[in-house]
């Protein structure tokens, strides 16, 4: 239940300000033939973080274009190497060998993307001067990833829901905000049910149920998240509604459509405002007792790889 004193998030950003950042990003990205991209991404992340307020203080993303550029170059190198080997196999060995290698190569990167991406993103995020951190073990995560990937393939994708739940559970358990911990209690079964019901009802209702499907997914993601402060277990809550999501998403669709994409930053801000308004932390959370515990970590390769391969959604 939501209580009146539960802590709220507020997003203060405006479409115009985000547009200003995005347009400069686009210009410089074109002129530099893409090399500016890491700085562009850093600028957008910095902006969205610092405009997000929680209990009177803003979040900060400390990552810089320079750090992300180093990761970007490494990520390009890794992806090019995979493609080059795949191409060589296609031309000199067999087409299928090359395609199989390409998929295996990208799958093999998954634990690295999650692990490296979270370590970087968390370490470079702070609130009230206290940094987040990720303490997962790469070996544990990759064992789990490869096992679950195999099961997902063998079950023709059905196990995917359990795969996602397992990753979420493992990563949440190892995310820290100073001496504060997290946990995730969602199960693969719950997620699978949401997928099945959501897909079927979306078809039956000719798409109308889609917004309630989104609501179920968001609730799964946040309502199963808990914060551990000392002995206290503090729930994260949501107040999303299908109608609210309908209003935001349909509105955004028309904003983007009628402005030929120029309105995208305004649409993005509407979404961020809606998301932050409807995620709450139970009043039991004490913002004043968190101790700094995490170390700095500045290698952005995992973050950049995840972005390039469009795997960001996993984090």
């Amino acid at each position: 239940m939501i209580k009146p004193n539960d802590h709220k998030f507020t997003f203060h950003g405006t479409g115009a300000n985000l547009f200003g950042i995005v347009i400069v990003n686009l210009l410089l990205t074109i002129i530099t033939l893409g090399l500016y991209y890491p700085w562009a991404r850093a600028a957008v992340l910095q902006y969205t973080y610092k405009e997000t307020e929680f209990i009177g203080s803003r979040f900060t993303f400390h990552g810089t274009g320079k750090e992300m550029f180093k990761g970007f170059i490494k990520a390009i190198g890794i992806i090019l190497a995979i493609y080059a080997i795949a191409m060589a196999l296609i031309f000199y060995v067999h087409q299928i060998a090359g395609i199989v290698f390409l998929y295996l190569g990208i799958f093999a990167l998954l634990p690295f993307v999650i692990h490296g991406g979270l370590r970087y993103r968390m370490s470079r995020t702070s609130w009230r001067g206290i940094h987040f951190g990720y303490r997962g073990k790469f070996n544990e995560l990759s064992k789990m990833c490869y096992k679950d990937l195999l099961l997902t393939l063998l079950t023709l994708g059905i196990y995917g829901a359990w795969f996602q739940a397992n990753i979420k559970k493992y990563t949440s358990k190892h995310i820290r905000y100073g001496d504060t911990g997290f946990s995730f209690t969602g199960t693969g079964g719950q997620l699978f049910k949401i997928y099945v019901v959501g897909t079927i009802l979306t078809y039956i209702t000719l798409g109308i149920y889609f917004f309630w499907y989104m609501k179920d997914l968001l609730e799964y993601q946040y309502n199963n998240l808990y914060i551990h402060q000392g002995e206290n277990t503090i729930p994260v809550k949501t107040s999303f509604t299908g109608g609210g999501l309908f209003k935001v998403l349909i509105g955004n669709f028309f904003i983007v459509l009628f402005t030929f994409g120029i309105g995208a930053p305004w649409a993005q801000v509407r979404m961020l405002k809606y998301l932050s308004q409807n995620i709450l932390v139970d009043e039991a959370f004490d913002p004043n007792i968190v101790k700094q515990t995490e170390e700095e970590y500045k290698d952005a390769t995992g973050e950049d790889l995840g972005d390039m391969l469009d795997l960001g959604f996993i984090i």
Binding site: N17, F19, G20, L27, Q46
Partner: peptide, 29 residues
């Protein structure tokens, strides 16, 4: 101190200028 952008400081005119400049540069490239 990180500024937002030279375009948004000038309001609607700046936004329009940004769009025009972007379209121009994009086509040139």
């Amino acid at each position: 101190a990180k500024k937002y952008s030279l375009f948004t400081d000038k309001g609607a005119k700046g936004i329009l200028l940004g769009i025009l400049l972007f379209v121009g540069v994009f086509f040139l490239f």
